[in-house]
Design a protein around this nucleic acid. Structure first.
Lengths: 359, 359
DNA sequence: AGAGCGGATCGAATCGATTCGACTGGCGAA
DNA sequence: TTCGCCAGTCGAATCGATTCGATCCGCTCT
C-alpha cells in the first residue's frame, strides 16, 4: 500500500481477469488463450490479445503462475565461496556456463547462492523459490539450509559432491586422473614427489598436508586427487594451498622449493592447473628451470596463456559437467531419476615434465 | 498431479494451516508466530513451533509468500554475453561480487540472466520473477524483454549503461581516466599513439577502428574511453579487439606492432588491463622491450600477476560499483529514487610507460 | 465503577493466475 | 433420426500464504 500513490504511472496493473472481462470471455478461457494449453478459437484468441494490448497487459504474473503450478522456473546453484572467490576458478565458471546454458534450454534460470555471504545467508537460501538445487563442490550435508530445502521436497544434484543415497552426483575421475599423472612421473624416474593440494575446507590456510587435515576435509576433489597421487607415491607429502589461484600456487611452490637442493622434490603434483602454473612461476623465481630442474603436473586442462610452455596435465570436461548437471535437473523435474555420472579425463602431454635431473 | 503417487516419501507437504490447526490457533496467528510481524504470546509461539516440528513443516512456502507480498526476493542481473564469456572479465566478476554481497545483506538473491542464450532467452527473462533488474553494460533498450519488465513495473538499474531518463546509472569516469593516461603519455613526449579498444558491439571481430564502427557501437565504455584518448590525441587510430582477454590483446598488439619500425607507435592505449597485458606479451613476442621500446597503459586496475612488471593504468572500483548498484536496488525497492553515480578512477603509476625511444 | 487502551487472537478477503469438471452446439456415424 | 463425440467455453475450486479489521479480555486511570 502507499506504493500506488507514489507514482501515478499506472492506476493498477491489469490482471488476466481484467483482460478477460474486456474481451468478453471468462478468465479460464483467457488463460488458455495465453498459454495455449487447450483449444481456443482463433477469433477468441484474437479478441483476448487485443484486449491485452489495450490494457497494456504484459502477460501472466510469474509469481501467481508459480504458486499455482508449483514451479518457479529457477534453479539454485550453490557455490562454496563468495562469488568473487569462486569465480576466479575457470573450472567453476565453465561448469556454471554449461549448467546455465542447459537450464536455459529448459526455460529455467540460474539463481546464484553462496554459502558464505556474511551471515544472513541461510535466510535467503531457505527462502529461495527454487525448483531444484545444484551443489558445486559442497557436500549435501554442508548446511542446515540444504536439509530444509530437501525436506521441502526440492531435488538436489551435486557436482563433485559426496556420494549420497538418492542424490545424483556428477563427478570426474579425480583419482584416476591424478594417478595417471603420477604414473608418468614415476615412469620417468621421479621418486621425490611433493603435492600442492586444493584447500581441504572452505577457508583453508597455506599449511603442510597432514593426515588429520585430510580426514577433516570437506572439499571432495582435494581428497580424491590426493588419494590418486598416493596410489603411486604412498608417502608423498605436500602443502595445502589457500585457494586455487596462480598466486596460491606460487606461494605453495615457494615453500616446497625454497629449501636446500637435497630436500627439494624433483617433481610436484599440483591439484589444479592454476596451482601448477603458480608452481612453475615459483620455480622461475628461484632460478629453477622447468622441466629440467623440476617437473610439474596440474589438473583441469584449462589453457594458461601466460605460461612459457604448455602444462602437462589432464583435461576434465568442465562445461560438460555443467551440461550434464543441467540435464539431470531437467530430468529430475520431469519426474525422472537421473543417475550419477563420472566423466573421464584426458591426458595432455604438455612440456612441463622430464627426466629428473641427475643429483 | 501424479507426482504425488510417484514417490511415497511424503503424503502431502504440511501447510501453515495444518500447523495452525494442530496448534489450535488460526492460520493468521500461526503466520504471525512465524514471521514475527505482530504480537503473539510466548506460549502460543511455542505451541506453533512444536506443531511445526511434529508435522515437519519447514516454514512458509516462498512462492505463496511472494504472491501475497508481491516480492520474490530475487534481483536479476543481465549480462551481455554468455556466462563463460562474461565471466572471463575480472571487472564483471568483481562487480557481480559486490552486487551479490550487497543484495545478500538486503535478503535478495541474484538471478543470472544472459542476453545470449540460444534463442529461448526472452521467454525466461520475461517470465523471471524478479523484483528488480540490473543491467551490466547493456543499454536499457537492448531487448524487448527489458521493456516488458519495465512496463510491468520492475525497476531497472544500469551499470555503465546509456544514460536514460528515470533509470539510475552507476558509472565510472571512463573518459577522464583515459584522458589522464593519455596525458601522461603526451607529457612524456609520445606523439605516435595507437588504441586497442574493447569490442564495440556484442560480438565484434578484430578490426581497425573506424568512425562508422564507433558510431554504431553499443558498448558504452568502449566509446567513452575512445573519446577520452582522443581528447588528447585527436587523430589516434587503433584496433578493435574481439574481446577483453589477454589473448585478444596479444592478437591486437601483434597487428599494431608487427610492422616496419617507422610505422610502429611508441605507445599503446589499451582499454582494459587484460588487453594491455596482451599487448605487453605481443611486444615481447616481437622482441620489443616494455617500456623502453613501447609504452603501454591499460584500464581497470586489476592485478595481473604473470606480467613481469606492474601495469601503468587507472584503477576503477569495480566491486564498489556493484555495491552501489546493490544499494540503489535496495533503495528503489524501498520506494526511494536512487541517483546516478559516477565513480572516479585512481592513477596507478606502474612501470610500463617511459620516454619514447629516440628514433 | 466506567471509560479507555492495548495485547492477543480470529475470520475472511486477497494476491493472480491455472485447471478440472460440466455444459453447449454442431457434425459425422450408425 | 438418434447417439456420441469433440471443439469451445465457463464457473468454481485451488495453490499457500499475508493482512486488515473486528473482537475479546484484562488493565489502568480517574
Amino acid at each position: 500500500m502507499g506504493r500506488r500513490s507514489d507514482n501515478a504511472d499506472a492506476e493498477a496493473r491489469a490482471t488476466l481477469s481484467d483482460v478477460a472481462a474486456r474481451a468478453g470471455v471468462s478468465p479460464s478461457t483467457a488463460s488458455i488463450a495465453f498459454s495455449g494449453q487447450g483449444p481456443v478459437s482463433d477469433s477468441t484468441k484474437a479478441r483476448v490479445r487485443a484486449a491485452a494490448e489495450e490494457l497494456d497487459y504484459t502477460g501472466p504474473d510469474p509469481l501467481a503462475r508459480s504458486l499455482r503450478t508449483g514451479r518457479s522456473g529457477i534453479v539454485g546453484a550453490l557455490i562454496p565461496q563468495r562469488i568473487g572467490t569462486s569465480f576466479r576458478d575457470p573450472v567453476i565458471i565453465q561448469t556454471l556456463d554449461g549448467l546455465a546454458e542447459e537450464l536455459g534450454q529448459g526455460g529455467s534460470g540460474l539463481l546464484l547462492l553462496s554459502e558464505r555471504t556474511r551471515d544472513t545467508d541461510r535466510v535467503s537460501i531457505e527462502a529461495a523459490p527454487v525448483d531444484a538445487l545444484v551443489l558445486l563442490g559442497c557436500g549435501v550435508s554442508s548446511t542446515t539450509a540444504i536439509s530444509v530445502l530437501r525436506r521441502r521436497g526440492v531435488p538436489v544434484i551435486t557436482i563433485e559432491g559426496d556420494p549420497e543415497a538418492g542424490v545424483a552426483n556428477i563427478d570426474v575421475d579425480n583419482r584416476g586422473g591424478t594417478r595417471l599423472l603420477a604414473g608418468k612421473l614415476r615412469d620417468l624416474g621421479h621418486r621425490d614427489v611433493a603435492l600442492v593440494t586444493l584447500p581441504l575446507a572452505i577457508a583453508d590456510d597455506l599449511a603442510p598436508l597432514t593426515a588429520a587435515a585430510l580426514d577433516a576435509a570437506t572439499v571432495r576433489p582435494a581428497v580424491t586427487r590426493t588419494h590418486g597421487a598416493r596410489d603411486v607415491f604412498p608417502d608423498a607429502q605436500g602443502i595445502v594451498a589457500s585457494g586455487s589461484t596462480i598466486a596460491d600456487g606460487r606461494a605453495a611452490g615457494r615453500v616446497l622449493l625454497d629449501v636446500p637442493p637435497s630436500d627439494r622434490p624433483t617433481a610436484i603434483i599440483a591439484q589444479s592447473d592454476l596451482l601448477a602454473a603458480g608452481v612453475v612461476f615459483a620455480a622461475q623465481d628461484l632460478g629453477l628451470s622447468v622441466p629440467r630442474d623440476l617437473s610439474v603436473v596440474g589438473f583441469d586442462g584449462i589453457r594458461i596463456d601466460e605460461l612459457p610452455m604448455p602444462l602437462t596435465t589432464v583435461a576434465q570436461p568442465a562445461q560438460e559437467k555443467g551440461t550434464a548437471a543441467g540435464r539431470a535437473v531437467v530430468d529430475l523435474l520431469d519426474g525422472g531419476r537421473p543417475e550419477s555420472r563420472c566423466f573421464p579425463v584426458v591426458f595432455e602431454p604438455g612440456a612441463t615434465i622430464a627426466l629428473p635431473a641427475a643429483r
